[in-house]
Design a protein around this nucleic acid. Structure first.
Length: 616
DNA sequence: CCTCTCACG
DNA sequence: ACGTACGTGAGAGGT
């Protein structure tokens, strides 16, 4: 047995690395007794983040408590592997994991412990930390990584295990990307830090739990987040079928587009279409007048500017109001093709597994408001104006894609949270909310333009925007928007009252606003107006979270593929599509403070793109 | 590492 | 008293 010492708070905490059968027996003796005393912190070291790629390896599994850690070299196989699996299944052991979905999926795929088994016995310290303060250090928060949490709660000089390991990688001639797979399994720093991470997890868990108690965060909220985490990790494990033939064809097409338009831009002296300064200079040289500047004073040459000069709408349609500028046109097309290829198509090909499925990482508590994000690839942000990218994602064989959306969920949530009487009446009566708003402001003879301003005013309320922005967004004159906003506040006085109340309560609570589900959202003092948006966005996220739980309870989880803020995407057997879609809708519909939250599904064909106009 | 740009809800 | 658009992920270019 080798013993190393992890430096923490002025002491060396022992890290044991079993080398023989007897050592493993000693490990298991410790494990059984420790599991009786309390939860066991767990962590894994692997070859990387691409859990589903061929050749992926689980290298070590670490177990520990506050006073010691055990690093089991799983990669050595045989009894090392068997002892890990036995420990994972031992009795009713509780585990503490920092960022559990990753380790769940690793153990599910590469050890003998399914996600369903581990999830019910795990407390995720990252969830606990996020419920205390969701902000990253750059935003003025503690941070939710193991390193910043350890520095804050345990020891400001606790080793930065990741950063130090990167140095070790370099000493072997490896990089951040290759080091995790290639570092020798016997490296002392590697093993010591592997053990260190579970010691840190065990120690912060106690402090985080105490802090949650002190802050009065409800147990139900903590449990609810763990359920959502398990549900989304299950979706990640399931993955989505990629149409690889289509993607390679699309890749070729986008490359050709990019090259053709890049060549045109080069004729005007632009060697790199993404270098905005170069594009601006070339346009100015052609006699084009550029009026907009960026924050730092550079000429702005974004999509809005380029499409205007190219005589196109923002959606890319021909306007026929001016002579198109050929350079602007070429730069627009070249950038679009390049972006679509690098951000979407290339990531699809990089992340697809051997079975042709993509397993996007779903971060269930990413945004400050609790909103989720999806990465590798960023499937929440695929272009929706055109079907070509979404066409690459398929339902399973014999199944079709279904999308079920909440109807105007943020506005309904606002009506519920602020108890907006007229809005609630209109929603219950099944009225179109924006038309109703226009009627309240302008009377029964309101025009479509009035509806647009009314809609803009509602968004302004939800986002915290003012007359200027609404005027810019809707194209309506500022005076008209100002008048409309005054009338809006008269029609829905409860919104302003709620905003003032939320702001006042936040100030009394150390600039933290507490949502209807008990979530604590720190406010930036200089942006206190954002409180309405935080309340609404966060409650809407919890409406989605509740829907996910209800769907899981109804046995629908195997069909779910993605949560996208106010929408879920599913893959359902063709024969049962109608019935399952209605079932998803039923699970998503709910009542929030007397306001019905409605959901409506759409059944497509085999590809996700079929819901956006593709014919397959 | 920062800024800009662009994709989404 | 007034006005503030909210939340993300990702690539390219340049320092």
């Amino acid at each position: 047995m080798r013993t190393y010492y992890f430096p923490l708070a002025g002491e060396g905490v022992p890290v044991y690395v079993p080398a023989s059968r007897d050592d493993l027996v000693a490990f298991f003796e410790w494990f059984k007794h420790a599991a009786q005393r309390g939860p066991i912190a767990l962590d894994t070291e692997t070859t990387g983040l691409d859990i589903f790629s061929p050749g992926y390896r689980l290298r070590t599994v670490q177990f520990g408590q506050a006073d010691q850690a055990w690093v089991i070299q799983f990669e050595r196989g045989g009894s090392f592997e068997r002892y890990v699996n036995t420990a994972l299944w031992w009795g009713s052991t509780r585990f503490l994991i920092h960022n559990a979905p990753f380790d769940w999926l690793v153990l599910d795929r590469h050890a003998d412990a399914p996600l369903e088994h581990m999830a019910t016995r795990t407390t995720d310290t990252k969830i606990l930390a996020t419920l205390i303060d969701p902000r990253q250090p750059m935003e003025g928060g503690i941070g939710t990584g193991l390193k910043p949490l350890s520095a804050h709660y345990l020891d400001p000089s606790a080793p930065d295990t990741q950063a130090d390991l990167h140095k070790v990688f370099r000493s072997y001639g490896y990089t951040k990307a290759t080091g995790w797979a290639r570092i020798p399994l016997e490296d002392e720093t590697y093993l010591t830090y592997a053990g260190g991470d579970v010691i840190l997890t065990a120690r912060i868990a106690k402090l985080l739990t105490a802090e949650l108690d002190a802050l009065g965060v409800r147990k139900e909220l903590v449990e609810y987040e763990h359920e959502i985490s398990r549900i989304c990790a299950t979706m990640q494990r399931t993955g989505i079928v990629l149409d690889r033939d289509y993607v390679s064809e699309l890749d070729t097409r986008l490359r050709a587009d990019e090259e053709r338009y890049t060549a045109i831009a080069r004729r005007y002296g632009v060697t790199s279409v993404n270098a905005s300064a170069q594009v601006a200079e070339a346009l100015l040289g052609m006699g084009v007048e550029l009026r907009e500047k960026t924050k730092t004073g550079a000429y702005k040459v974004d999509k809005a500017v380029l499409t205007y000069l190219a005589d196109m709408s923002l959606q890319g349609e021909r306007l026929d109001v001016r002579t198109p500028n050929p350079l602007a046109e070429a730069v627009y097309h070249a950038k679009r093709a390049g972006k679509w290829r690098s951000a979407y198509v290339d990531t699809f090909l990089e992340t697809v597994d051997a079975d042709g499925r993509i397993h996007p990482m779903i971060n269930t508590l990413q945004a400050r408001t609790g909103r989720m994000s999806i990465t590798r690839p960023a499937l929440q942000t695929l272009p929706s104006s055109d079907w070509v990218i979404r066409r690459a994602m398929l339902a399973d064989p014999g199944e079709v894609c279904v999308s079920v959306d909440f109807a105007a969920v943020e506005l309904r949530v606002l009506a519920a949270l602020a108890d907006v009487r007229r809005m609630k009446e209109a929603i219950s009566a099944g009225r179109d909310l924006h038309s109703y708003t226009a009627e309240l402001i302008w009377g029964p003879d309101f025009t479509p333009k009035h509806r647009k301003i009314g809609k803009g005013a509602s968004f302004g309320k939800v986002y915290g925007g003012g007359a200027e922005t609404i005027s810019r967004q809707t194209g309506a004159p500022i005076s008209e928007v100002k008048t409309a906003l005054t009338a809006y506040d008269r029609a829905y006085p409860e919104i302003k009252r709620a905003a003032r109340r939320w702001e006042r309560e936040a100030r009394h609570n150390g600039m933290v606003t507490v949502t209807v589900t008990g979530r604590r959202l720190p406010l930036d003092p200089e942006r206190a107006y954002a409180v309405t948006n935080y309340q609404v966005q966060s409650a809407a996220r919890d409406v989605l979270g509740q829907a996910l739980i209800t769907m899981d309870e109804s046995g629908l989880l195997p069909y779910l593929r993605l949560p996208i803020h106010d929408e879920v995407v599913a893959s359902v057997p063709k024969a049962d599509a109608e019935e399952l879609t209605r079932e998803i809708e039923r699970c998503m519909r709910m009542n929030l403070g007397g306001v019905p939250i409605d959901a409506e599904g759409e059944i497509g064909g085999r590809s996700w793109g079929s819901l956006y106009g593709a014919d397959f």
